[in-house]
Design a protein around this nucleic acid. Structure first.
Lengths: 225, 225
DNA sequence: AAACTATCTGAACGTCCGTATAAAAAGTCA
DNA sequence: TGACTTTTTATACGGACGTTCAGATAGTTT
């Protein structure tokens, strides 16, 4: 995984220049996140990102390094936060007993849906970016290692509920759950077109249908074995 | 929808040049299909396509027109065949009575899975291309109109089984079904990583799990209403 | 104040892009 | 054969790309 260049240690420093530099770097990363989410890696130019961030061309390279490096930084930036939300939700479930598949699905999906809907538009862009790259092995490998450990925790819980299900079947249904979740964020246009109604503002409006779908899907797929 | 340039009517003609030209055009389209599937529209260059098709640069433009045109042609080329397979499968179901959700799911998914697994590697590339662009509204709109009519036929059948489900809910579960199907084709790497086993050669190996998942998901999501 | 460092600017570099086109080659038909 | 059409080649063009860098600017430290 590539890393963005750290010209100087920013934390615990009183130098005002470093604080300003960090702020500029955030603007660049935010702009890059929006651009990559909207158009994909190859279609985005450094000049677009610079314009979007309202900085000059050289600044993007100064704070973001090469284009590949910048992309990797954008991908990795938010994984810790998202993982923490999912781990917290899982821990909360484990505190009490009688966990159901529905509980697990809800705990896994809700942080992402809330992030993609309510929160910061930057988080929304990130959610779209993940939805975009998930169908591209070459790029998806860059986030896979970051999300897999938490996914494994959820898999372990699913296997406690369905001890006889094969490892592959459990991995498959979790992947299908993630794919369903991402598709809600990424392609609400199609739902709108098929139903004849306008697309909802928030992905959370689809939460109950999505959770029902994934819950029923997992239970059906793992019940046979 | 853009169209590729037709320099001359090829059908019913005895001119050997036109036949040869059509063959070259197919080679160009096949190469473009593979390239776009592997890397996406923006990341592919005309020169790459030319190299892949083993023709010179100008030939790509001559047979494919502009890059956008070429992309549109590749997208549209196989829709009729796939739609026919799905419509045939649906008609076969309608011939006999007692259609279940599972029947519909199986009828809708199987042609795609077979195409993506067994058939022509070109069809496999096409399947990956669709999986790629489905998360990009800008490109997906180009095939949406081609696939939606058949999707509507399936929606009508689902609504006959679940008359009380809302239009939005039915459209949502069909979209989730498609997303699940595409993710099996596009991102089998992740399943392999999570399950610890190597990825299967054929997407058909996941068929039963996928069909179970989508069937259970649809029934669960539509049962509540 | 001067010395120093981090940040930013503006311009330039070589490369590759999509597209166009003139001319050659190949094939058809009279 | 020679006139004609379709296909292919080879080359060129203007532009946009990612990256680099010397120098200007601004903020900190001594």
């Amino acid at each position: 995984m590539p890393q963005a260049p750290d010209h100087k240690e920013p934390s615990g420093n009183t130098d005002g220049r470093l604080a300003r530099g960090e702020a500029t770097k955030d603007r660049v990363l935010d702009a890059a996140e929006r651009c990559f989410a909207a158009h994909g890696f190859a279609a985005v130019t450094i000049r677009q990102i610079a314009r979007e961030a309202e900085v000059t061309l050289g600044v993007v390279s100064f704070h973001g390094g090469s284009k590949e490096l910048l992309f990797g930084t954008v991908l990795a930036r938010r994984t810790a936060t998202l993982n923490a939300l999912r781990t917290d939700a899982l821990n909360a479930l484990q505190g009490r007993g009688g966990i159901t598949i529905r509980d697990l699905v809800d705990a896994y999906l809700t942080p992402y849906l809330e992030i993609a809907s309510r929160g910061d538009p930057q988080w929304r862009a990130y959610a779209q970016l993940i939805a975009r790259i998930v169908s591209d092995d070459q790029y998806y490998m860059q986030v896979r290692d970051l999300y897999d450990p938490v996914a494994r925790d959820y898999i372990a819980e699913i296997r406690r509920i369905h001890p006889n299900a094969s490892a592959k079947a459990v991995a498959t249904v979790l992947t299908l759950t993630v794919a369903s979740m991402l598709s809600i964020v990424a392609s609400r246009v199609r739902i709108a077109g098929l139903s004849g109604e306008p697309a909802s503002e928030s992905a959370l409006d689809y939460r109950s249908t999505l959770v029902d779908f994934c819950t029923g899907g997992i239970e059906q797929a793992l019940a046979a074995h």
